[in-house]
Computed example of a mutant assay.
Amino acid sequence: MVSTSRLPSMFQSSRADILLFSLPCKSPMLPHAKFWKSESDRKVLPAPTTIVPFAGRIGANQEFSLDKTNCAQVEILQKFPDAAPWIPLRDALSLQHFLQPELWKAATIEAVGPTFATGALVPSLLGGVTAILVLPLLIFATGPVSGAHLNPTITIATFFARLATLPRCILYVAFQTLGGTIAGLLLRASFDTRSFTVPGCYMDSTKVSSGNAFAIEFTTDFALIFTAFGVGLDPRQRSVFGPALGPIFVGITLATCTFVTGFSRVGYTGFSGNPARCFGAMVGSHFASYHWVHWVAPLCASIVHGIVYYLVPPYSRGRTPPASDGSS
């Protein structure tokens, strides 16, 4: 057997990953995913078991992820490796998953969030209230199809946390950015001018340097990712929050970050929180020289969070006991 000890990446496969196809069949790993508890409801309403499993779903990942050690799930895991957490490096980076139509459908839905999330809002208070009300609704609406990331920051973080494949990450970020671009152009058409600002995406560069902005963005993005994983993506919370409360708590997290950073510096309109939103705002108005901060800070925060997530994993990655050599 080939040793995995030399893999340098945080994506290093565990022995359980390698032994996937050699393990005996188990009983079904989880009950069928369900939103309804009533037997009569399940007879009338359509069953959600046709939803494509995806371990990186916000709020519902616990209900729609698979057990990679269950040989009955081999076929779906070959098609969608991120149906189970802790994706092996080879599967996470495989480009053949670009050929899955279901992945493109999910990515298309991801364009919806930034389209509605970009707007010329009053900063801090109103932005926070809007996040509390709108974000959970968008998550509930798009979650069954795409997992409701709606934000490149969350998507990139799930990739580094081994909850999403590279093809899914690329497609989601591309369509999220497309949605933000459409929103920016709609704002320009609505205001009939390019002279507008979107709080969280603009700052007074004479008062706040790019370095200062990066420090604030990185810190807040890491807080957003860490908290969002804790209440909406971490499987340890499946019996505490589950698919119903997770999206609401993610909305509260974003609202808190938006409100607090709106007062952090004079000339700073608050943290971005969503690079696609700021990209769209600048497409509709004017690109600023510090726009790189809106992308690099979430990327760095996602990498750091991925390292933390790898060192303190939410799953117990059980090892297969060594075969007995017959000695006492």
Rank of each mutant, 00 (worst) to 15 (best):
Asp204Lys: 03
Pro247Gly: 11
Asn61Ala: 14
Thr69Asp: 11
Arg277Cys: 10
Leu171Glu: 03
Leu138Cys: 10
Ser209Val: 09
Phe160Pro: 13
Gly200His: 07
Ala148Gly: 04
Ile225Glu: 10
Tyr202Thr: 13
Phe140Ser: 02
Pro114Asp: 08
Pro28Gln: 10
Leu7Val: 14
Val260Thr: 12
Leu224His: 04
Phe35Lys: 05
Phe35Ile: 15
Gly242Lys: 03
Phe64Arg: 04
Val2Glu: 10
Thr4Ala: 06
Asp91Tyr: 00
Pro48Tyr: 13
Val308Tyr: 13
Gly262Lys: 00
Tyr268Thr: 07
Leu45Pro: 06
Ala120Glu: 06
Pro53Cys: 14
Phe159Pro: 04
Thr258Leu: 15
Thr4Glu: 06
Ser272Gln: 00
Pro8Phe: 13
Ser190Met: 04
Phe241Leu: 15
Gly180Tyr: 09
Pro243Thr: 08
Leu171Asn: 01
Ala60Met: 13
Pro24Ala: 12
Pro243Glu: 11
Asp234Ser: 07
Leu133Tyr: 02
Thr50Arg: 10
Glu39Gln: 12
Val296Lys: 04
Leu150Lys: 03
Thr49Gly: 06
Ser289Gly: 01
Gly267Trp: 01
Ser27Val: 07
Asn212Ile: 05
Arg188Leu: 07
Ser9Asn: 08
Val250Trp: 04
Ala92Gly: 03
Gly232Arg: 04
Ala223Leu: 15
Leu103Met: 15
Ser146Tyr: 00
Cys71Glu: 07
Gln62Asp: 11
Thr181Asn: 10
Ala148Phe: 07
Thr193Cys: 01
Thr177Trp: 02
Ser27Lys: 15
Trp36Val: 06
Leu166Ile: 13
Val134His: 01
His305Leu: 10
Ser316Asn: 11
Pro53Leu: 14
Ala276Lys: 02
Gly251His: 06
Val312Ile: 13
Leu125Val: 14
Thr258Glu: 02
Thr206Lys: 12
Ser38Thr: 12
Phe196Trp: 03
Val240Lys: 14
Thr69Lys: 07
Gln78Trp: 01
Pro322Ile: 11
Val208Ser: 02
Ala83Thr: 09
Pro136Ser: 09
Pro85Phe: 05
Leu45Trp: 08
Arg188Val: 07
Leu137Ser: 15
Thr227Phe: 05
Gly119Trp: 03
Leu299Lys: 03
Val208Tyr: 02
Leu171Met: 11
Gly180Trp: 14
Asn70Arg: 01
Ala16Pro: 00
Leu137Met: 14
Thr177Gln: 07
Leu45Val: 11
Ser14Leu: 03
Trp36Ala: 14
Ile182Thr: 09
Ala47Ser: 15
Phe222Asp: 04
Val304Tyr: 05
Phe214Glu: 11
Leu178Ser: 08
Gly262Trp: 02
Ser5Val: 10
Ala183Met: 04
Val260Pro: 00
Ile18Cys: 08
Leu20Val: 14
Gly280Met: 09
Arg194Asn: 13
Pro28Asp: 12
